[in-house]
Amino acid sequence: MAILDRMTERATRRLAQGTSRRSLLTALGGILVGATGLPLLPVARASGGAGSGYPGVLPQSTGDPQDPGDPASCDYWRYCGIDGFLCSCCGGSASACPPGTEMSPITWIGSCRNPADNRNYIISYNDCCGLTSCGRCMCNRNESDLPMYRPSANNDTNWCLNTKSSVYTCSTAVIIGYAMDEEKK
């Protein structure tokens, strides 16, 4: 028992003599500053969605300099007339449906300018159908979208037509050709 008493006394005295009373404040201050600095670390930024603009969505790339931008971002050039959830965020891509869904053959078609070569491309906004709405990466840009009385160019329609299921899941933006500039006569 005496040994235990002596050891405890010596340890306590050493601690009291070796540290200042303010070290507690130092430690607390360090924790406070550290806690506010934590969200600035790259790990926190990735889950914050700084790349694509959507929370929890990591940036993507086509890997093709002729097809620039992030397909998981609403700013991606092909999405200029889209209205819906981006299939890129739903297990598919800008031109493919997520597994378990079916691409609608009936679709609306518009054109977007590719910033890489400054040409207009014809874009087919095929909907993917058959699973519940994806709910991620809602994107509504509406360039060249026309009102309902021009049904072939309206993107508010559910284009899940002629598919097994008419339940809308998400939207793609498939390049189907070059758009020729209007020729003036």
């Binding site: 053959p105 009936i106 679709t107 609306w108 078609i109 518009g110 054109s111 014809i122 087919s124 072939s152 160019a153 037509l161 002629n162 189907i176 050709g177 758009a179 020729m180 020729e183």
Partner: peptide, 24 residues
């Protein structure tokens, strides 16, 4: 130009090969 306009104004519903759909 005609094909371009077909793509932009028609083929969304009539399909690229013009075959359309049963109820559409």
């Amino acid at each position: 130009t005609a094909k371009n306009n077909w793509m932009l104004h028609c083929q969304g519903c009539h399909l690229p090969d013009g075959s359309g759909s049963a109820d559409g």
